[in-house]
Write a protein that binds this DNA or RNA. Structure first.
Lengths: 111, 111
DNA sequence: TGTGTTACCCACCAATAGGTAAGTAAGCAT
DNA sequence: ATGCTTACTTACCTATTGGTGGGTAACACA
């Protein structure tokens, strides 16, 4: 059982740790749905909320914060009142769109 | 926002529900690691346990049960003492190997 | 003055996931 | 008799996740 993953001139991280991290990143009841929503459009907070029916405000705010922290989403606040805040996928966020697509394929088989 | 997924002559399931189900199926701290372990070998319970360091017995047993229920893993008990039990990936289980591979690629970027 | 708007925050609660440590069955070797 | 082996089970506990229902800022408009 030898770690298979190489990083040029850097430490070698065992596959299981990498998978664990990736699972951390993509999991959560709503996260992939939010990413999927943001796939083609820049959306305001309220638009995301309406696009993810069933999610609570607390969780949506928390998810968006984490997605920003992870570098997957960018937040832009315009200093207006009432407030206007826009969220858009970053390039890093786009790297997980293939996962979303795979999930769409695979999910069918388990319905 | 029109549901994009068609099933010939069957009900149309909204994309978000499919993604949600898929996330349910693949999530859990250890599940993808177990699947990855079983990728090329049929393994006994104890071998899996040693291959997933850190997992508790309770959780491992529970995960294996769920994977069997989901049809992703097959369990074979030989009526021996001390017991011998083998676990192997099913074809259905193999359908999520592409997800594991994607996770391996993506996980890197978030380490 | 009062109401609506929007994107939040907060205190509290419930459900689920995961961890710990002990025990069990049944046979074999000592 | 005793202990070793293996694949579990059980009771109990903690941590994380998610949900509920309220509040707030700051301005525009009636």
């Amino acid at each position: 059982m030898i770690p298979e993953t190489k990083q040029t001139n850097e430490e070698i991280i065992p596959t299981e740790l990498i998978i664990k991290k990736a699972v951390e990143v993509i999991c959560g009841k709503w996260r992939m749905i939010i990413i999927h929503l943001l796939r083609e459009k820049v959306l305001r907070y309220g638009e995301i909320k309406r696009g993810v029916p069933g999610i609570s405000e607390k969780v949506l705010v928390h998810e968006l914060k984490q997605l920003v922290e992870l570098g997957m989403v960018e937040k832009e606040s315009f200093g207006e009142v009432p407030p206007r805040v826009e969220y858009r996928l970053t390039d890093k966020g786009r790297t997980i769109l293939p996962v979303v697509d795979l999930l769409k394929e695979i999910g069918q088989a388990f319905m």
